[in-house]
Design a protein around this nucleic acid. Structure first.
Lengths: 183, 183
DNA sequence: AGGGTGATGTCATCAAGTGACATTGAGCCA
DNA sequence: TGGCTCAATGTCACTTGATGACATCACCCT
């Protein structure tokens, strides 16, 4: 991480990372599948937390409410380290390869949430859609949280984004409003 | 594509691809930034189509309606080649590196849609959220369309998924229903 | 003490990707 | 016709990422 910040991701070689850690490049690859993975080491534990939060939601809660519980757990894990998150995010944002890796982690998160929902008895179709929507909220919220100058809490940003999504999907425009009124 | 199907993505080398095309590896890299990009050559044109469909939506249409128009355009482009889409999808699904690339293409699509919405006068926050939600619908729909045995049209799957998302986000569970009734 | 076990190092090798420069060939113009 | 230009392609050399095979070393257990 030090090296990535100092000289950029592409400009730092695995040999250098290993050297600074007092190890060999070969050893590096025994701990990290590739050069990018260093920045995503914590993502597995984040995923576990989200899933277990999902499991802890009231059984009667509808899918998006359960997702909201999971998002709150995410906020609790990440919300305390805004400075670090900013630094990490700026490294990732600067390199397409890293953004790719981040996206696949998000996709994995989405899949895990969908599976968690299915275990709660949610229909498969609803589950993946709700999970995708939840991840969309996560992504947008996190980005806002690190980039906004205001010091709004991550959990709050997430709640706001979710209700914003609700409003957006509910808004079917003038035509549909007329239809609904005449129905 | 032939080689990727024949022997898998990792097992085929750029030298082999170039040889089958009657070229040199060096020349391959003049056409494709990397080995993965071959499978995503058409994505730029897909993105252009979606954005111009978005621009063509009625100015008064709310964000998600405009997004829905763009999704219809996507369905029109892709809906006719289910067999090819299946083959391509199976190659991509089998390799994490390819899924990464696909995800970043989707993210690029999302960013383009968000920008298109902003040009329509949608607030930035709404725009990115609506775009993300739209891409979520796209992703889920496409996956269903290639994997379902039924021969439902892609456009239809997309419409169904979108209204499903509407229902999911609207469902706030028993508590909120009571609140709403007492309000 | 001796032996197993896990972490690390060493070496060799392959494939991805890139920069610098040479070659070819098609079209064009005086 | 002869020569020029320009784009596409080839050739070569090199760096780096990544992996397999095998050697070593330190430590723990009995």
């Amino acid at each position: 991480m030090e090296l990535y910040v100092e000289r950029g991701f592409e400009q730092t070689t695995v040999a250098e990372i290993a050297q600074r850690a007092g190890l060999t490049a070969r050893t590096f690859f025994r701990y990290f599948a590739d050069k990018r993975e260093v920045l995503f080491a914590g993502s597995a534990s984040l995923q576990e937390h989200l899933v277990s939060a999902l499991e802890g939601a009231p059984p009667a809660a509808p899918p998006m409410e359960a997702i909201s519980t999971a998002l709150a757990a995410a906020a609790a894990m990440l919300g305390g380290r805004r400075a670090y998150s900013r630094q990490r995010q700026s490294v990732i944002a600067a390199h397409a390869e890293l953004r790719e890796r981040e996206l696949i982690k998000m996709a994995s998160l989405s899949a895990a949430l969908a599976e968690g929902l299915r275990r709660r008895g949610v229909a498969a179709a609803d589950a993946s859609l709700a999970a995708e929507a939840g991840i969309a909220v996560f992504r947008v919220s996190f980005e806002r949280w690190v980039s906004e100058p205001t010091e709004r809490e991550l959990a709050q940003v997430m709640r706001d984004s979710l209700s914003q999504l609700r409003a957006l999907t509910a808004d079917r425009g003038p035509d549909q409003v007329v239809d609904a009124a005449s129905a």
